[in-house]
Computed example of a mutant assay.
Amino acid sequence: MIERVIPARRKDLGGFEVGRVLPAPLARMVGPFIFFDHMGPADFAPGLPRSVDVRPHPHIGLSTVTYLLSGEIMHRDSVGSEQPIRPGEVNWMTAGRGITHSERFEKGRREGDRLDGLQTWLALPEADEETDPGFVHFDAAELPAFDEAGVRGRLIAGRALGLAAPVPVHSPLAYLHLELDAGARFTVPAEYAERGVYVARGDVEIDGQPVPDTHMALLGRGRPGVLAAPRGPATVMLLAGEPVGPRFIEWNFVSSRKERIEQAKADWRAGRMKLPDLDHDEFIPLPPDPVPPPNPMS
């Protein structure tokens, strides 16, 4: 049963738009998933300006996963990684006590491209928030996949449906990419406490209730849900996991402790966080602190 449906809120990042789903006012997290952006779809013409790139910036207390439906992004980070990501592949970066990285649209600049993908952050358990930073990449062929009854699926990370992905996760979770043919049905497993179903393309129903394009349905606990694509093909991302506890999130920082975020802000402002080895000539400055609302009693 659907408990809540969250629409993607469109945000312009300066050259392309994203649909931001998490965090939302009424749903901060799904298991450890604390941030979920749908990038694009956006068509890039050759000669794309460098201002569209995501310049070096920092993270703490989380893992990020970039997963593309189309397009290509070049990743560089402060642990020495340089890795393009293409559709069906996984770039999994663990920030831990601190990492910096950039995301460049170099293929789009050279020859044009169509960007369509998902970027997700997962909060680390408290015991792992200060772990060493790291980065791993997996080709599509390394990820478990299945194809049956009009449903093609790939397990991006975690465990589900008797499958286990090689990605080194820090808490119990599942992240699935599903392609449903028109009329196909899929049973959303109930093995995790919290589950979200995001419709990237098409329209679906869950237990007979409609979920439109670019919306995420949050499912109730304890029972499977029947996902169907009665009107046409659909692309769906399934997020599931066990809660890791409440988290603070500010700019690119996630932590169970507000003071740790303040320390990260001070470190970035003072230049104490190492920039990517292969991309260190520019960076995104720390945004100003938000202005608190006026006190109506003053």
Rank of each mutant, 00 (worst) to 15 (best):
E3P: 13
P7D: 15
F16I: 14
E17D: 14
E17T: 02
R20K: 12
R20W: 04
R20L: 15
P25C: 15
V30Q: 00
V30N: 00
G40F: 11
D43Q: 15
L48P: 04
H59M: 08
H59D: 00
I60Q: 08
S70E: 06
S70M: 06
G71N: 10
D77V: 09
E82G: 08
V90L: 10
R97D: 04
R97Q: 12
I99P: 02
R104V: 09
K107I: 10
R114V: 10
R114N: 10
Q119G: 13
D128W: 03
D128H: 09
F135N: 02
D139S: 06
D139V: 01
E142M: 08
P144Y: 11
P144G: 02
F146T: 01
A149D: 11
G150H: 11
V151D: 04
R152T: 02
R152F: 07
L161M: 05
L173S: 12
H177L: 05
A182Y: 08
T187M: 08
P189G: 03
A190Y: 01
V197A: 05
V199K: 00
G202R: 11
V204R: 06
E205M: 03
G208L: 10
P210T: 03
H215P: 15
H215R: 14
M216Y: 04
L218Q: 02
G225D: 00
V226Q: 08
G232P: 15
P233T: 11
A234P: 06
V236R: 04
M237C: 13
V244A: 06
V244I: 13
V244H: 10
P246H: 03
I249C: 01
E250L: 10
W251M: 08
V254C: 06
V254I: 11
S255H: 08
S256T: 08
K258Y: 13
I261V: 13
Q263D: 14
K265M: 15
D267N: 09
D267Y: 02
R269K: 03
R272T: 14
L278W: 12
E282I: 12
P285H: 00
P287I: 03
P293Y: 07
S298T: 15
S298M: 13
